[in-house]
Simulated scan of single mutants.
Amino acid sequence: MSAAETGNAIAAMGTVLGPDVVAVCRDLFDAEQRTLAARIPPIATDCAYGPDARNRLDLYREGEAEDLRPVVLFVHGGGFLVGDKGGQGGSGPENWANAHVGRWAAANGMVGAVMNYRLAPQHMWPSGAEDVTLAVEWLRANVAGHGGDPDRIFLLGTSAGAVHVSAFLKARDDHADLVRGAALLSGLYGVTPLDERDMRYYGPQDCYALRMPLTAVMETRLPLFMACAEFDPPRFQTEWASMLQGRLGRHGRLPRAHYASGHNHYSMAMHLGTADCRLSNELLSFFAEHS
């Protein structure tokens, strides 16, 4: 499928969310992502970074690591309720979703780490921030043995994963000592009201102001990269635009930002590693700047 045909298919879906849209997006990138998956198998799978069965991560690296490489920890989306790191047990190329971000990092000279985390409603706030913290601590203690530099860890989260990365910034006052930067794709930070799905993770509406990571994202001095997609639902676009404006007012400058034209809430992260390099180039430039 050509780039134009892919763009037309994404535009035709509009800004709706749901498993049917996920399936269509996955089909759009399946051929390219299977090729990447066949080329870069994991170098370690199901590494236990914490005590829960979901506290597992996989590592990806291409070639031998003569020098320690920057590390990108990817935190998947799923509305707090679903999602998986993919690539379990080194399974075949068809199981590429989410694992592909680790492979993309590896293909670009880094070590990619892709984590699972505990899911709502069994595990509510602040389990996401706790799991990101545990994963970062595990990487700092262990990633050098896999060719990664524990002093050059970057976080990359999409949707609920971006929220959990943001909550890590809120939970850890020393976050800037633990990671070099954070890239947030289509997250919800506390600008717009909770919806019913959010409450299955955060609890009742009256917990909203206390538990959302808005202040931490607004105030942190950690280098940030913030993105949204042209066909993100309006709520996500409002969050992105408001955070850019808020940080401009507070810090006197915008954070590094990207508007993913021709993409939707799912395709923005899902297309990393394909021929569409616009977001990839921006992320790689951000990582290189702060490595």
Rank of each mutant, 00 (worst) to 15 (best):
A4P: 01
G7F: 03
A9V: 08
A11R: 11
V21D: 06
R26A: 14
A31N: 06
I40F: 02
P51L: 02
E66R: 14
E66I: 15
A97D: 11
G102W: 11
G112S: 08
G112D: 05
P121D: 00
H123G: 01
S127P: 01
E137D: 14
W138Y: 13
H146P: 00
P150H: 08
R152P: 06
F154W: 02
T158H: 14
A162R: 01
V165S: 02
K170L: 10
R172C: 10
D174Q: 01
A176T: 14
L178T: 07
A183S: 10
L184S: 04
S186K: 11
G187W: 03
Y189R: 02
P193T: 06
Y202W: 14
G203C: 06
P204Y: 08
D206A: 10
E219P: 01
T220F: 04
R221A: 11
F225T: 02
A229K: 02
F236A: 12
T238Y: 05
A241D: 03
S242E: 11
M243A: 08
L248W: 11
G252V: 07
H258A: 09
N264R: 06
H265A: 00
L272K: 03
T274L: 10
A275W: 04
S280I: 04
L283W: 08
S285T: 13
A288E: 15
H290P: 00
